[in-house]
């Protein structure tokens, strides 16, 4: 294949992976600091409701995870079961869209 689609996907996966690495550290540190002494689900929602900065952070987090995971799954599908071509790309896009929708739905539950 002469185009550079594959390497661009690889680069997007690398960049989303870097983003995820940073976001996971921020997420874990926030959790460790926030739950000092314990918090209930109600208290968490009280803090997160209306916090759009937090909403933006977790939305990007969810999208990065969806993109990273679906590109990785595409590669695994190619190498392990030999699934290639348009149907495989379509399945990867659908998987990415599903993960994005689920992630953003969860974020909206926290913020809205």
């Amino acid at each position: 294949m002469k185009n550079s689609f594959a390497i661009k996907l690889w680069l997007v996966q690398r960049l989303s992976g870097m983003l995820l690495g940073l976001f996971v550290i921020i997420h874990l540190m926030t959790m460790i600091i926030a739950i000092q002494g314990g918090v209930t689900a109600g208290e968490i929602l009280e803090r997160t409701s209306g916090n759009f900065l937090l909403g933006a952070f977790y939305s990007v987090f969810a999208i990065a995870a969806a993109v990273h995971g679906s590109i990785g799954l595409r590669t695994v599908a190619q190498e392990v079961i030999g699934w290639r071509g348009r149907s495989m790309n379509l399945a990867a896009v659908c998987f990415c869209a599903l993960l994005c929708a689920m992630g953003l739905f969860a974020v909206s539950g926290l913020v809205l």
Binding site: M1, K2, N3, S4, A6, I7, W10, T75, E79
Partner: peptide, 10 residues
């Protein structure tokens, strides 16, 4: 040429 489907990223 080395960045297509069978390229270095694999």
């Amino acid at each position: 040429a080395v960045s297509g489907d069978g390229g270095c990223q694999n």
